[in-house]
Amino acid sequence: MLLTENEAHTPRYSFATECMPLLAQIIPPTAIVPYADDINAKKRGCKLSISRSAIPLHLSYVVTDIFTQGATFKKDEPFLLHFGAERWKAANIRVPITRQVSMDDVHLLAPLGEGMSREKALDRLGKALTPKPAFVREMTHRAAQEAALLSSPMYKDMVDQCRAQDADMRQRGQLPRHASSVQAAWGASARAVYACPVCKESLDGAETEGPTPAQRGEAQRSTKKRGARKLPTNNEGLDARTRRAHAGLERRVLAPGAKVVSAFVHEPLSEGEAASWLTVMDTGCASRRMRRSRLDDVLVSFPHEVQVVLTRKSMQILADQNGWLEDDIMTAGLWMLQVGIPLKPL
């Protein structure tokens, strides 16, 4: 029954005796029991119930534009684009095109606006690309944030350094992962900004040691009480107890030997990478409403570029290996913003 790549289809074995034990070994019992999803038909009318048995796989040769968000198409795996003649929205047009790295890689199966007059196509395209006022306000706000960030001398040197290194690598024909270049460039300079924004103390040396159980407990309690969104941007208006809690919190999120890295990472981190880095930001996966709302709060609180979210896998690895709560990891990200690590793709 199991066919190798070079085998014909003729040899067959008993599924019950040969294959079922294999399935049972890897798949939990709950997963191999077929189940039926009943739909409660609320709409009246003629209907027919169908039971379908199929292998839960799709051919992935065709994907939707939603699937391609956060992806970068590779040159050796071309993607054909088909916009069809309906449901044009700004994202529908922008997303598939901006996943390419060159215009030479854009291949349309049919013209945009096929089957309609040019005037109608222009009218629909113009309407589709016209953003809503709220979106314009948001993007203007972020553009102002980016301008403020780039004009700051403290960040300008770091950004220029990373871009220069990146350009140098590109000239040499190597396109490194952004994370690698950022890590190499910021490995030393990041220590200079490790001062706690609350108590203004350096976190080098003994300060970077792991938290004591008391600190961890206190910080966790304070995290639950205050919530990540209430992390203040400076030490004004804080009493001594809150300052101590913050100091413990920020010490806790800095694991010994950890490096602060913010990067534009498309792939989930491996375990080794996640263990050596403090955290990694991903700008393409802000789809969860809960995290989006937190980031919206951050946008108001911090004057820097904040289109960031941790990858789920990275969060899981960090949580498993270091025992951090989700709030802690988010707080680490917020704290990085606070101390001035530029969080934007380089």
């Binding site: 798949i27 189940y35 999803d37 739909i39 003629c46 209907k47 048995s53 199929a54 292998i55």
Partner: peptide, 17 residues
């Protein structure tokens, strides 16, 4: 990993139904 077939139930309504 082996992916085994599963069964689902759905309803078709309206003209198709």
């Amino acid at each position: 990993v082996p992916v085994k077939q599963k069964s689902v139930r759905f309803q078709v309504r309206g003209p198709l139904g």
